[in-house]
């Protein structure tokens, strides 16, 4: 009898691992370049992300051309002059969350975590170590949130002197993702 219980628990455990891949393809990432002369805000709402609560692994990918801007010209300049989307169409992040042991997925709450990993934009990879928040709502849905600063020059994105006063050197980036369980083979 006891044996059967152990077996069942073991199998459940197995199946949990199999399903424990959370996913979104409507993740939100925005950035804003603020200068006294000009504010430029780009919003991408088609961010793809995977998160595995079991291991803390987390990954993001987005298309640079999916960023929308208030000024149509800003979008063209962003893609053509700064991130060079034709050469480097995607941005990718792969990393791990630490501090996830504290998360209780069955109870609503917010948990501070640390994200570490590698971010690739404009063909250049930079190590990232930032704070983030994982929140669980009443329905057990998992969300992620983070705000951090990126410097275009770290990614080899040059801002010429001519437009130096219109493009910020430090760009705050906001990430919001609402995860759903990932169904394989869909």
């Amino acid at each position: 009898m006891r044996l059967t219980v152990i077996l069942i628990i073991g199998l459940i455990n197995l199946s949990l691992y199999a399903q424990d891949k959370l996913y979104t393809n409507t993740g939100y990432i925005s950035f804003i370049s603020e200068t006294p002369l000009l504010n430029i805000e780009g919003v991408n709402q088609k961010v793809i992300s995977f998160f595995k609560p079991g291991t803390g692994e987390i990954a993001f990918a987005l298309r640079m051309t999916d960023f929308s801007f208030e000024l149509p010209l800003a979008r063209e300049h962003f893609n053509e002059n700064y991130v060079e989307s034709q050469k480097f169409p995607n941005a990718v992040f792969k990393g791990k969350l630490s501090g996830i042991e504290a998360i209780n997925y069955k109870q609503a709450g917010t948990y501070p975590v640390i994200v570490t990993g590698e971010m690739t934009i404009h063909g250049q990879t930079v190590k990232i170590n930032e704070k983030a928040i994982i929140s669980i709502d009443e329905g057990g849905n998992v969300s992620g949130f983070s705000v951090f600063i990126l410097k275009p020059e770290d990614f080899g994105i040059k801002v010429p002197r001519l437009v130096r006063d219109k493009v910020a050197e430090q760009i705050p980036v906001t990430v919001k993702v609402d995860y759903i369980p990932y169904a394989d083979g869909k």
Binding site: A18, Y23, I48, E57, A59, A61
Partner: peptide, 12 residues
């Protein structure tokens, strides 16, 4: 499952 995040990102 660990190995496949890369290919899943590409696929999605």
């Amino acid at each position: 499952a660990q190995d496949d995040l890369d290919s899943l990102l590409t696929k999605e």
